[in-house]
Simulated scan of single mutants.
Amino acid sequence: MCRLMGVVTRAPLPLTEALSDLAAPFTELSREHRDGWGIAAWPGQGTGLHIVKDTEPAFDTRRWDHTLMGTLTDTALLHLRLASPDLPVVSGNTHPFTVGTLAFAHNGFFTPYDALDELIDADLLAGAAGNTDSERYFLRVLTLLREENPVDALAHAAAEIRARTSFASLNCLLLTEQALYAYSDEDPDSEVSRRRGPDFFQLRYRVDEDRVVVASSGVPQPDGDWHVLPYRRVLEIHRSSLRVSVHRVAHALVKQI
């Protein structure tokens, strides 16, 4: 179980400024979620996706602070990892996972981790960097993106996981060149959800005049300022306009499996 945060700003800013008062409490979460971290960010129009990952706890490495201070961006995805049992803390298992102009991070787990392998295009599966369920989730989304838009692909992949696995949460963030997407989903009867409580896997988002933030629980999210992203919905935040949409995707989208 991990922690997620995404931010989109009207103009490029250092991440410390874009996150403002959320940077310190999010970093503090790495005292528990200490199995590595990653940041994917768009430095600006016309430049490539910037990726920094580390297997050290964020609170205990200067590289995390330097990355927050030194990354000038209008759109970023941040991930703090708490590794599932038996999954090693190595770079290949560290989020975000990236291919080309896309980055993906997941909060939760499902088992068996290879339940989607037959649904993933062979070229994508052959390029897997690690052995996590989360990367398989991303690879299935990538497969679907060859025919579907990001909103449908996220909801479609999640529905397939629900049908094939036992899972705790399918919360995720997907970063593209055009937008940041968030998907929210959990099994409230999972052992983790019962132990952690009903709010642990909730994703919330905040819309300000010049910034939109989406985050896992654990950072300050006072009522009135933050909105809960309902389960099985996709939040879409456009980079160019900061336009925010919450999509409800029909279950009929999912093919027979």
Rank of each mutant, 00 (worst) to 15 (best):
C2T: 07
R3M: 05
A11L: 14
A11N: 10
L13C: 06
P14A: 08
P14K: 13
L15M: 10
E17D: 10
A18Y: 04
L19E: 03
L19T: 00
L22C: 12
L22E: 03
F26K: 02
T27M: 09
T27Q: 08
E28I: 14
E32L: 11
H33R: 01
G36T: 01
I39L: 09
I39F: 00
A40M: 08
A41L: 07
W42G: 09
G44Y: 06
G46Y: 09
L49I: 13
H50W: 15
T55P: 03
E56I: 13
A58P: 13
D60A: 14
R62T: 08
R63T: 11
R63Q: 12
W64H: 02
W64K: 05
W64T: 05
H66R: 15
H66D: 01
H66Y: 14
L68Q: 01
T73N: 08
T73I: 09
L82Y: 02
S84R: 03
P88Q: 10
V99L: 14
A103P: 03
A103G: 15
A103D: 06
A103H: 06
F104Y: 04
H106D: 11
G108P: 00
E118T: 03
L119R: 01
A122G: 12
D123F: 07
A126Y: 08
A128M: 13
A128F: 00
G130P: 04
T132Q: 10
R136V: 00
R136P: 08
Y137V: 00
L142V: 09
T143D: 05
R146H: 09
I161W: 13
S166E: 15
A168E: 15
A168G: 12
N171G: 06
L174N: 01
L180T: 09
A182C: 04
D185I: 08
D185E: 13
D185G: 02
P188D: 11
D189S: 00
S190P: 13
R194P: 00
P198Y: 10
P198S: 11
F200H: 12
F200D: 13
Y205W: 09
Y205H: 10
D208A: 09
E209Y: 15
D210L: 03
V214R: 01
G218C: 00
P220Y: 00
D223A: 03
D223W: 14
G224P: 02
G224F: 06
D225Q: 14
W226R: 06
P230I: 00
S240R: 14
L242K: 14
V244S: 04
V246I: 07
R248F: 14
A250P: 08
A252G: 15
K255A: 11
I257T: 09
